[in-house]
Design a protein around this nucleic acid. Sequence first.
DNA 1: ACCGTCATGTAATCGGTTACATGATTCT
DNA 2: AGAATCATGTAACCGATTACATGACGGT
Lengths: 170, 170
Amino acid sequence: MADNPNRKLAPTSYIVLGLLDMCGEATPYDLKGMVAASLGNFWSVQHAQLYTETARLAEDGLLSERREEDGRRRKLYSLTDAGRQALADWRAESTRELYELRDLGLLKLFFGADPAAIAPEQLAAHRAKLAEYEGLVAEAEGLAPSGPRLALESGIEHERVYVEFWERLA
Amino acid sequence: MADNPNRKLAPTSYIVLGLLDMCGEATPYDLKGMVAASLGNFWSVQHAQLYTETARLAEDGLLSERREEDGRRRKLYSLTDAGRQALADWRAESTRELYELRDLGLLKLFFGADPAAIAPEQLAAHRAKLAEYEGLVAEAEGLAPSGPRLALESGIEHERVYVEFWERLA
DNA sequence: ACCGTCATGTAATCGGTTACATGATTCT
DNA sequence: AGAATCATGTAACCGATTACATGACGGT
């Protein structure tokens, strides 16, 4: 708990803070599930990182840690006030940088792969993803737009672009 | 030059191989320029990596290395036959994995940032990028579609989606 | 001749990935 | 009760980011 507010936080740090803000209290393993269910669709996080990053953030004083009673005695993390503040600051500051799109299919295409050779598989994968997203958004029908909801809508539109793109090349 | 064909190559490795395949021979610094000019738009590579990765690939026997004559005596790399083969193999094998979209604006939105607070800057940045891409594609007008050209077209469509998305939130 | 900036490179640190390892639970 | 699978965690390695450092060159 040695407050060290000097470390520069990485995106992964904010993912942990943000998820804990959503759910209140969780073990690293719970966070893994949360990532897989939502955010992992566009920003993957290795599960081992969730253990190291929670530990680091607790060290920085941004998370507090308590242990379960029962057998496993797992560590449960939640935001401290400092953590909530760090998250709020980050959310508020705007960012000019754009995105990075790490897409192996596109990379191969860039370097001269035969479109017909990779298009079918990419197409199938993107169609499946699109269908999955559309199912999710149908469930959320009518609910007020929330952050995850907006991100999902963005994901759908990008998937549509992808499907059309690979269809042309298939 | 100790052939070690066992190391598993990372995407960065193929970027180096691919760029050298395009240009024949280059120094790491030249590669930096090539990345910045094209591919860096969707897949960034830190310049220091180009030094370490070329050295590793030469060690693996996939690149050959010779030194300039003049003052700086810089190292010039080019593909060996093994390197060309590795690149060809990679290009040919299809990949089911999708992409990863590391977009800080979207991430903040996901975690509840106020859309109006981040939309203007994102919108400006994406509009600028879109205009840049459209300029590039105009230059390439009429040429046969090549890998970079296809990737560029994909980029344009994604940028359009982005612009529309942030316009709705602005 | 000096100063600033761009070109070029290396070293150290740190985050991320992979691999390993063990406790719980379910199924037969 | 044994096997298989899922839950949960740790450690070691390696790639990636940052910081530093020096050489060349153009302008005043």
